[in-house]
Simulated assay, not measured.
Amino acid sequence: MGAASLALGTGMAGGFGVKPALAQDLSLLKGSGDVVVCTWGGASTDTMKEVWFEPFSEATGINVTSTSVPDIAKLEVMEGMGNVEWDLLDAEGTQMELAMQKGLLQPIDYDMIFKIVPREQIDPKVIKEYGVGSVAFSTVIAWNTGLFGSEGPQNWTEWADTTRFKGRRALYAQPRPSFEIALMAAGVPPEKIYPINIDDAFKALDALKPKIDLWVEKTSQWGVLMQNGEVDLMGSSLSRTLDEKKRTGSIDFTFNQSIVEQDYWVIPKSAPGGANAQKIIAWALMAQGQLAFASRMPFNVANTSIYGDIPKEMQQQLPGYPENAARNLQIDQAWWTANAEQVRLRWLDWMSKG
């Protein structure tokens, strides 16, 4: 496929009016072979395939397959055995930091990327030596509208009030963001959460634990639990909550005290398709694809040039929409990276006690 076709043949812009990158630059992305992308599954991965991976394959000749779930411990084993199966990961910020510390990543090729995507379009906060922003996702307070209508809990303290809000509660079975949720439920203001006092966090969790009916092991479970009406009050992912709200109206939520975490594209140090992974990153950061993704999924993206072109109703569902951003808590990935091992061991012991 010629360079002009690379620029214009994907149809990703879909009439949104975003100017494509210079056609001659995109010839840098042509190639061959395979690349394996490890993502989190669900609707977000389906959308990535449709607006990023499949058009990339068609335009460049590089075959893309996806798998799940990003796991740094597993990546470390792969590297140790000399058999890395992943070429690109959509890693949480804390996962990226941990993988960096362990020497498991290769640097991002910004010289190549910025020939495809103007540097000034990318949020400088998500440009890191070993990772570049993919998406930022939210955990929100959600509830069963059959029980509470549109008047569900508006903060985590209310969410934990079993007298006012009677129902089955579920949280993600990980210390992050359970620490933040428990502390806010105990009345700690969001701006006072960090640095977290670990003893205080477990004390708050001790108070919250008897109220939790289900600890969700995988984020993919949220949709099924909502669809089956198995839980009534959730600290669930925004994307899966919105899916169910649009599908049936049985779930509603608030952006108040939502918890936002940044993900990054990272490339394993020994990735067999590492060069192709660099090309996928450049392609995914282009304005056309970023706009197509952000117009369909409630995630912040790295290319800030597209936000004015997102349909208004979708803008209002994004964590970064000004009204929403003013109400959220941003995960402090530096704190979590510094304390990850200490917290992990204590968390496992705490969870094992029932």
Results as ranks from 00 to 15, higher is better:
226 M>H: 09
119 R>F: 01
326 A>R: 10
54 E>R: 11
61 G>L: 04
283 W>C: 09
57 S>H: 08
145 T>Y: 07
161 D>V: 07
116 I>G: 00
160 A>G: 11
229 G>C: 01
281 I>V: 10
116 I>S: 00
67 T>E: 12
60 T>N: 11
229 G>F: 01
186 A>D: 12
217 E>A: 07
332 D>R: 04
324 N>I: 03
319 P>I: 06
187 G>W: 09
150 S>G: 06
51 V>S: 02
192 K>H: 12
336 W>Q: 04
74 K>E: 13
335 W>R: 00
56 F>I: 06
310 I>T: 11
165 F>T: 02
87 D>V: 05
88 L>M: 07
176 R>F: 04
312 K>C: 02
266 V>S: 04
299 F>M: 08
241 T>C: 10
215 W>T: 03
1 M>D: 14
208 L>D: 13
139 T>W: 15
86 W>Q: 12
71 D>E: 03
143 W>A: 08
93 G>V: 02
308 G>A: 11
133 G>I: 04
274 G>F: 08
101 Q>G: 15
29 L>H: 02
92 E>S: 13
148 F>S: 05
27 S>M: 08
236 S>E: 10
159 W>P: 05
187 G>S: 13
345 L>Q: 15
129 E>H: 12
259 I>P: 01
120 E>W: 04
240 R>Q: 09
178 S>P: 03
87 D>L: 12
303 N>D: 13
291 L>I: 05
233 L>V: 02
297 M>H: 03
76 E>A: 15
303 N>W: 13
165 F>C: 08
218 K>D: 01
230 E>N: 06
164 R>M: 02
89 L>H: 14
90 D>R: 15
124 P>L: 06
212 I>A: 04
187 G>P: 09
108 I>K: 14
250 S>E: 09
17 G>D: 12
2 G>T: 14
229 G>I: 00
60 T>G: 08
94 T>R: 12
277 A>P: 01
213 D>F: 00
260 V>E: 12
76 E>N: 14
196 I>S: 07
279 K>E: 10
282 A>H: 05
40 W>N: 14
336 W>D: 01
276 N>E: 09
325 A>W: 06
95 Q>T: 01
354 G>D: 13
171 L>F: 05
290 Q>T: 10
210 P>Y: 09
37 V>R: 07
300 N>I: 15
92 E>F: 14
169 R>D: 01
214 L>N: 13
202 F>S: 00
28 L>M: 05
282 A>T: 01
292 A>I: 02
150 S>I: 09
321 Y>K: 03
90 D>G: 11
